[in-house]
Simulated assay, not measured.
Amino acid sequence: MISVGTPIPNLALLDSSGRPQRLRDRIGAGGLLVFFMRTASCPICNAHVRDLERHADELAARGMSVLLVVPEGPDEAEAWRLRRGIPFAVVTGASGTAHEEVGLTRRVFGAMRQSGTLLIDAAGLVRYALGSTLPTGAYDRTAIMRAVEALPPIDSMPDVDKTGEHAPAGGSES
């Protein structure tokens, strides 16, 4: 799995309406929490999503965006999002799965897709990473919230452009 301290790849994604997205474009002022679900039908992954919903205000207060990544296609992702009333953005990989691009592969003879959680700071660096073949081990709210609290306050973050490069002091030149 991708390591803490490394820049997040700018994954090509599709939102649940089928529109192209880039992972870096989803990073909020305080960062981005990404939960990679094993499948949209995984009951344990869905329990983790419900827990994220319960803590949505706390994350939003820190300027944190939340993104759910499912391996299914956009149509299935949108149907799941609507059926469950999910308040977060739901995306899928534009080609293949985004899971594999961050090192969440299939294990147990290729039968089980790994799930996991990434916390990305506003500069695009991975600050927390947890992946597991068993979905019970892919989400740890206590550790996530500790990692969120360890991020610098929004007003102390450097200006960052969408490529992940730091902008010149005082803004960009024309």
Rank of each mutant, 00 (worst) to 15 (best):
L68K: 01
V66H: 09
E53P: 00
P43F: 02
G18Q: 10
S17R: 15
T92R: 03
A40M: 00
R54K: 11
S41E: 07
E72H: 10
G93R: 07
A89F: 02
R106M: 10
D25S: 13
P20F: 11
D15M: 09
P7D: 15
V91I: 00
V70I: 07
V90H: 04
L11G: 13
L67R: 03
D75S: 14
I2L: 15
T39H: 05
S16W: 15
L14V: 03
G28I: 05
T105C: 01
V4S: 05
I8L: 15
G63M: 04
I2C: 13
C42K: 02
E100C: 02
V90M: 03
P20W: 10
G85N: 12
A60Y: 08
V90Q: 03
P20I: 04
P74K: 08
G93V: 03
R107G: 05
I44C: 01
A79Q: 13
F109Y: 12
R26L: 12
P71C: 10
R22Q: 13
F88E: 04
L82M: 13
S95K: 10
T92Y: 00
P74H: 13
E101H: 13
P71T: 09
R83V: 02
S16T: 10
V70L: 02
A98F: 08
I2D: 12
A29W: 00
V70K: 01
F88T: 02
V102E: 12
Q21K: 13
T6E: 15
P7Q: 14
E78P: 01
H99T: 00
I86E: 15
S16A: 15
L23E: 10
R24H: 15
G31T: 07
R106D: 07
G93F: 03
T105S: 04
R24C: 08
D75L: 14
V4L: 03
A94L: 08
T6M: 13
T92K: 02
S17K: 14
D25M: 09
A77D: 05
W80K: 05
A40E: 01
V90R: 02
R84M: 08
R54T: 09
R54F: 01
V102Q: 12
G73V: 06
H99N: 09
A77M: 05
N46S: 09
V108M: 14
E100P: 02
R107K: 13
V34G: 03
H55L: 08
P74S: 14
L23H: 10
R83G: 11
V102G: 11
T6A: 14
S41A: 12
A89K: 04
